[in-house]
Write a protein that binds this DNA or RNA. Structure first.
Lengths: 229, 229
DNA sequence: TCACGTATCAAACGTATGTTTTAAACAAAT
DNA sequence: ATTTGTTTAAAACATACGTTTGATACGTGA
């Protein structure tokens, strides 16, 4: 949005706030939170350094705002998806594939704000887990625990054959494969593109990830291998 | 003046270098690289601040040294394990389970330097991938590409049914599930102990992880789910 | 037109960082 | 005893960080 400098018109608040959020979102995804300074963000957003603290209060609050901007509508979409799943099944337990698909398709169907699609959100979610930002973890737990708990309940119904301990660990394995992969999906895509000459979108990665996770979740526990270890 | 460790002749009684490495290893694993300052490391190690730059040259070189201390002997052990695998099979392709077991058992058999066992190494490996430290990535590529390439070749032989792209991504999924889980296995064990009253050792986690990974690797690609996405 | 709350700006604040310097203490070899 | 190299110590270095300040410009309602 170009505004002649001679007009010297004060921009509407949303303009500055959104530009900060856009720049922060990209830089956080590329470099992580600690490695991204407010000066990088404000210079990329072409706003004054003080604007971040003026509009958001602190760097941590800006991080929270970046997450809330995409996580709040995503959780709403996901809740609707869960509603449909439950009404369609009518008390029956959902299949694991259906449950994972609800997660992934809700993510893919989110409106894209830029050319990077949802990969930037996936990367941020991965960073939220792997970087040690306690304030962010607390924020996410406080804001989105309801949707998370609902997913966990549905997952338990979808895998009745697993013991509580097995299910617990396999959830960690799933979470790890997803968060880790997505936390470097852009870098991985670049590598793959150079190595194998294949262009890869996040949707394609997800379509490869879901069968992997579903098969892992439904593996027979205590295979002969596990006893040899 | 900085002198490489290998050239030092007269060794004083002090174990300054090891104390720095021990402290750095733990702090890096707990907090990440950027979030850990040299002052935290030196005060935990109870050495002078200047000792790090004296013995290692820079903070980045210290990070490399932390990785080299456990990665070099691990790769040696792993190479021997691969040797045994190849001579036993005599040209035949190894099974996926045997290959994964070689990886995991080599890790478990590493001499433990502290009470955290190998989980601290797993966590560091995970950080090496997820944190944006280009110098570290370059260091690891230069130092350990031989062993890594050998593993990739064996993995390709063990999964001939997979396309190159499928295999590539599933390796990422495996790596993610492993690094993520092990990076917080101590915390996860504590949670599990309180929640379900079960004590869990790393070896037990690994015995649960391997079947999960093997099943995921051998899942049929392009399940109906992936086409609906 | 005036006053008031909002937004922007350049500048400075205090703090923490990695690194370097200078000096002294120490152990072992000459 | 002297030399040589290793280690500790305290301080300072320059830089980067998040945050705050005070002045100024803006748009809106009175």
């Amino acid at each position: 949005m170009f505004v002649p400098t001679s007009q010297r018109v004060a921009m509407a608040q949303s303009d500055t706030v959104d530009r900060i959020l856009d720049a922060a979102e990209e830089l956080f995804a590329e470099r992580g939170f600690s490695e991204t300074s407010l000066r990088m963000i404000t210079s990329k957003a072409k706003v004054n350094l003080a604007a971040v603290n003026y509009h958001f209060g602190s760097k941590n609050a800006l991080i929270h705002a970046v997450f809330a901007r995409f996580l709040t509508p995503y959780c709403e979409t996901l809740e609707h998806s869960f509603d449909n799943l439950e009404t369609t099944l009518g008390g029956q337990a959902p299949t694991l594939e259906a449950l994972l698909s609800a997660l992934m398709e809700s993510a893919i169907r989110m409106p894209h704000r830029n050319a990077y699609g949802i990969s930037i959100f996936m990367r941020l979610l991965g960073l939220a887990y792997t970087q040690s930002q306690s304030h962010l973890r607390h924020f996410l737990e406080n804001e989105y625990s309801a949707t998370f708990s609902r997913f966990m309940r549905l997952l338990k119904e979808a895998t009745p054959q697993l013991s509580a301990v097995d299910r617990y660990w396999r959830i960690q394995f799933m979470l790890g494969a997803t968060a880790f992969t997505m936390s470097s999906s852009q870098a991985l895509s670049d590598i793959l593109q150079n190595k194998l000459g294949v262009e890869t979108r996040v949707e394609e990665i997800v379509s490869r990830l879901v069968p992997f996770l579903a098969a892992g979740m439904q593996a027979r526990p205590n295979s002969p291998l596990s006893q040899s270890a």
